[in-house]
Design a protein around this nucleic acid. Structure first.
Lengths: 150, 150
DNA sequence: TTGCTTGCAAACAGTTTGCACCCGG
DNA sequence: CCGGGTGCAAACTGTTTGCAAGCAA
């Protein structure tokens, strides 16, 4: 199982002469901690921070998100909706990312465990001779609620 | 097996009072027919057409690509590299799209058959109660050639 | 003739970057 | 004090759109 990510983890991961802990970086991470399960874009985070009274530059949000995902604190996702979305990476470090089911009607994003893909990956590696390092999988359809309303 | 797509297919599919067959649409399709296996962006197509002496507006290329993928003549892909890419949709109409393996070193794009995902999809549908209509799957890694050069 | 299409330029959205100033360690 | 970080605005990229003129049917 993955463990909960805290601001302390950020502090630990930034223990490097090249990186600094700043209030901006802390508060960006805080947004994700306070919004578990959300898949937030840079604009989303910026908006949430505005709402909370923190007036930090949009460019800084972009830069923080990039840094946090490099540190594997956030997972970067591309749902093909025109912007990058991030979420807390709660998985253990050597596991792959998890994946998404997106409802085409209500936009709800559900998640599914990665291990279902293991067999598929092995199969594809054998057939294609590719050494697979990462994957991005998204399913589109209707969630249980929306199926009833169609 | 899928069949070869020709300009005639375009003519057939555009048999509607709302659509017209234009030289621009034909030549855009022609580019894909002449570049099998390529995953081309709008800019790619525009550039290729320039090179061939056809001076088509970029906006028209975008509009043609959109139309051709609505007609299921092209398949639209999102490889997360910042632009939409298209390729001929050679699969039979009721099959899902096929998927991609992208080499992180040389950028080579290989393809793999869709049917490997069938089981996975059924499994996910059962567990999640989502009715899955479509999916987008991309694997990233190193192709056989680049593995040797690492 | 009719109205879908085109080309162009302007508009757009999301993201990145240059630079002067700021501040954490 | 110093090198990385921030804010702002401008730049950039890929894409879309409004509109007048063009052309397929």
């Amino acid at each position: 199982m993955g463990k909960k990510i805290t601001i302390d983890d950020l502090t630990k991961k930034l223990q490097s002469p090249h990186h600094k802990i700043t209030p901006q970086r802390k508060i960006v991470l805080q947004v994700f901690i306070e919004n578990p399960g959300e898949h937030l874009s840079a604009e989303d985070v910026h908006y949430i921070l505005r709402d909370k009274g923190y007036d930090i530059g949009l460019a800084t949000v972009y830069r923080s998100l990039e840094l946090l995902s490099e540190l594997a604190i956030l997972q970067k996702n591309d749902f093909g909706d025109g912007c990058r979305r991030y979420e807390l990476n709660t998985a253990n470090p050597d596991a792959h990312r998890h994946h998404h089911l997106i409802c085409l009607k209500c936009g709800k994003v559900a998640e599914f465990a990665d291990d279902l893909l293991e067999d598929l990956e092995v199969d594809i590696m054998e057939k294609s001779k590719f050494k697979i390092l990462d994957h991005q999988v998204t399913f589109y359809g209707y969630c249980s609620k929306c199926q009833k309303q169609l």
